[in-house]
C-alpha cells in the first residue's frame, strides 16, 4: 500500500490529479463556512460585475445571487454526486456480478441479458427518463445516473468471480461446509473487487458530467446549486456576461480532469510502473 502511495506521488499525473481534487474538496468543505446560508438567495443587484464589490468577489448572476457562493457550493454537489453514484454503481454491479457468476445457469443468463439491456440504452436517456418520472432530487439523480453505470462493474465482477470460483481456496471453503453466501462474501467478493475499483475513476467522472448535463437541461435538483444549472442560467446573458457560464464550466473540467488524472496515476502505481512510456 505504501509502495503504491509512493509511486503515485512520483507520477506527474497522479500528483496533478491529487492536487486538483484536494483543492476542490477544500472548496466543497469550506463552502458552508465561508458562505453560510442558502447560496440560492438574492444578495445583491443583478449582474454585478466580478471584482467590483468586495462583499461579492465574483459578482452576481442575472437574479442577483452570489456567484462565488454558487461555485463553492456547486463543488459540493458535483463531488457528492460523483462519489455517491460510484458507490451505488459499484455496490449494485458487485452484487449482480457475484450472483450471476456464482449461480450460473439460468440466473446468470437472465441477469446478463438485463445487463445487456441496460448497456444498449444510452445512459443519459435513461437518467433523463428516470428523473422525469420520479421528479428531481439529489438522491433520485444519483440513482438515475447509477442506472447507466452499474453494468461495467457487473460484467467485470462476474468475469472475476468465474475465474475465482474455480480456485482451490474456494473449493476448500466448500469442503469445510461454509454457507454459499458466506463463501460469496468472504472468499470470492474481496478477491473480485480490486480490478473493478479501476473503473471508479471513469464512473465518478461520467457521473459528474451527466449530473451537469441534467442540471443544464433544467432537470437537476432545483433546491441545490449545481455548476450545470449555473451554466444554464448564465447562458441567458452569454453575450453580455459570458463569465457566468464559463467559470462554472471550468470547475467541471477541473473536477473531471482531476478524477481522470488521479485514476490514471493510481492505475500506473498499482501496476507497479514508475511512469508511463
Amino acid at each position: 500500500m505504501n509502495r503504491v502511495a509512493g509511486r503515485l506521488l512520483h507520477s506527474p499525473e497522479g500528483v496533478a490529479g491529487l492536487c486538483l481534487l484536494v483543492l476542490l474538496a477544500a472548496m466543497a468543505l469550506a463552502a458552508p463556512l465561508l458562505f453560510p446560508g442558502d447560496p440560492l438567495v438574492i444578495v445583491g443587484r443583478p449582474l454585478t460585475a466580478p471584482f467590483t464589490d468586495p462583499t461579492l468577489p465574483l459578482g452576481t448572476d442575472r437574479l442577483g445571487r452570489d456567484v462565488a457562493a454558487g461555485l463553492m457550493h456547486g463543488a459540493q454537489t458535483s463531488l457528492l454526486v460523483g462519489l455517491a453514484t460510484a458507490l451505488v454503481a459499484l455496490a449494485a454491479g458487485a452484487l449482480v456480478g457475484t450472483v450471476a457468476g456464482l449461480a450460473g445457469g439460468l440466473v446468470d443468463e437472465v441477469l446478463m441479458r438485463v445487463v445487456d439491456a441496460f448497456q444498449i440504452v444510452p445512459g443519459f436517456l435513461l437518467a433523463l427518463a428516470f428523473v422525469s418520472v420520479t421528479g428531481a432530487s439529489l438522491p433520485v439523480i444519483i440513482f438515475a445516473i447509477a442506472l447507466g453505470a452499474w453494468t461495467g462493474p457487473a460484467r467485470l465482477v462476474r468475469a472475476e468471480v468465474l475465474s475465482i470460483r474455480e480456485r482451490d481456496y474456494v473449493a476448500a471453503a466448500r469442503v469445510i461446509g461454509m454457507h454459499p453466501a458466506e463463501i460469496a462474501l468472504r472468499e470470492v467478493l474481496p478477491n473480485a473487487l480490486p480490478p473493478v475499483l479501476a473503473l471508479t475513476a471513469v464512473i465518478v467522472a461520467t457521473a459528474v458530467l451527466v449530473e451537469a448535463a441534467l442540471s443544464f437541461l433544467g432537470l437537476g435538483d432545483p433546491n441545490v446549486v449545481t455548476w450545470g444549472s449555473m451554466i444554464a442560467e448564465g447562458r441567458n446573458v452569454l453575450r453580455t456576461a459570458p463569465h457566468l457560464s464559463i467559470v462554472p464550466g471550468l470547475g467541471l473540467v477541473a473536477t473531471v480532469l482531476g478524477v481522470y488524472l488521479l485514476g490514471e496515476g493510481l492505475a500506473d502505481a498499482m501496476a507497479g510502473r514508475e511512469a508511463r512510456g
Partner: peptide, 25 residues
Amino acid sequence: DRALSTGSLALYAVPSFWLGLVLVL
C-alpha cells in the same frame, strides 16, 4: 506524446454542452 496524451485527457473532461457554448461565444 505526453503533451498529446494529457491534452486529450483535458479535452475528454470537458462537458459537451459547455464546449458548445464556448464555441458559440
